[in-house]
Simulated scan of single mutants.
Amino acid sequence: MVTFIYMFLILLSVSTLYPFLNAIVISLNEGLDTSKGGITLWPREFTWENYSVVFQDERLMSGFFVSVLRTVIGTVTAILATAIFSYGMSRRELMGRKYYMIICIITMYFGGGLIPTFLLIRELGLMNSFWVYIIPSLISVWNMIIFRTFFQGLPAGLEESAKIDGCGNWGTLFRVVLPLSGPVIATLALFTAVGHWNEWFLASIYISDEKLLPIQTILKQILASNIVSEQTASMDAAALAHLQKAKTITSKSLSMATMMVATLPIVLVYPFVQKYFVKGVLVGSLKE
């Protein structure tokens, strides 16, 4: 039975990892050779040309910078705003706390829809603005519930001691509660960062300036085009000349290289916060 379980887990791991590994191999293989097929787990004609073209494309590098900036600012502000909101919702002395909670939960299941949201974003002056990535996603009700439950599980004596020492609500939150909430903060920060990094839909609706497009939206356009000429139209003269000289780049190889550039940074973050997952999410969501 144990052998069967291990065999099943190995097959599951291979089936999960293979598409990602195959994408890496294709991105490192000569494009024209890839078009012949048969590329599996090792490059047949190894080359860096695909990545060379990607890093010479100013549009992609601009999108990468926007994505990094959006992820950092969006994660920090969202975790801070949600933590403050959650701390208030965790106070038992808050009048109408249950009704506020019901209102918050309703927003998890019912939304205004795309058109009302578009009109709201336009009236707020967030169209074609970097802040359209940040402000609408400041509060996550799901993260608030996890934060709130975690805060309620902290010993009441800690806050009482802080108040005796002269701390108000803000002092208690920032000097006592948040320093003790490392696991749940790390876990929710990772989930929030992944959401910001992978999100592409907002930019496709609210952003028309190419300089504000994140790399995921640009990648979506690349994968949708499937025509190398549409990729080269946005490159500078040096990159275009390099591509014409190489004669080995195809739409598929260029797409895989772009996908790796967009995916690997956030994937590399996971090992550093993996140890917080169980302690942060399970404790924060199951204790009551």
Rank of each mutant, 00 (worst) to 15 (best):
V54R: 00
L32H: 05
E30R: 11
N29G: 05
A238Q: 08
W42H: 03
S251C: 07
A246M: 10
R148Y: 07
P183G: 02
I105H: 01
S251E: 15
A78Q: 12
W48K: 01
Y276C: 09
D33G: 02
L173I: 09
F64T: 04
L286Q: 06
I205D: 03
M89R: 06
T71Q: 06
G153T: 10
H196N: 13
V267M: 11
M1V: 13
L12T: 08
K163F: 04
V283G: 02
V261I: 11
Y6C: 03
F201C: 01
W200D: 05
S234D: 04
E210V: 12
E230W: 02
S137E: 09
E123P: 07
V132F: 09
D33V: 13
W48R: 00
R97M: 04
F130C: 08
L202N: 13
G37K: 02
P19I: 01
L11W: 02
E123G: 03
I10S: 10
G284E: 08
L219K: 06
W142M: 07
N169T: 09
L223S: 14
F20W: 08
I79S: 11
G63K: 02
S13Y: 01
I146L: 14
Q216M: 14
F150P: 00
T258A: 14
G88C: 04
P155E: 03
L180D: 02
V267C: 12
G63E: 08
S253H: 04
N226W: 03
G284A: 12
A246Q: 11
L28N: 10
M144N: 07
S208V: 11
Y18M: 04
V53K: 00
L9R: 10
L28T: 12
E93H: 03
F8D: 00
A78I: 05
I222A: 11
R122M: 10
S67L: 08
N29K: 04
I146E: 01
E230V: 11
S229A: 15
S86W: 04
I121T: 14
S208F: 15
M127V: 15
N29W: 05
V72M: 03
V14T: 03
I103Q: 00
F174D: 00
C167S: 15
I146S: 00
A224H: 05
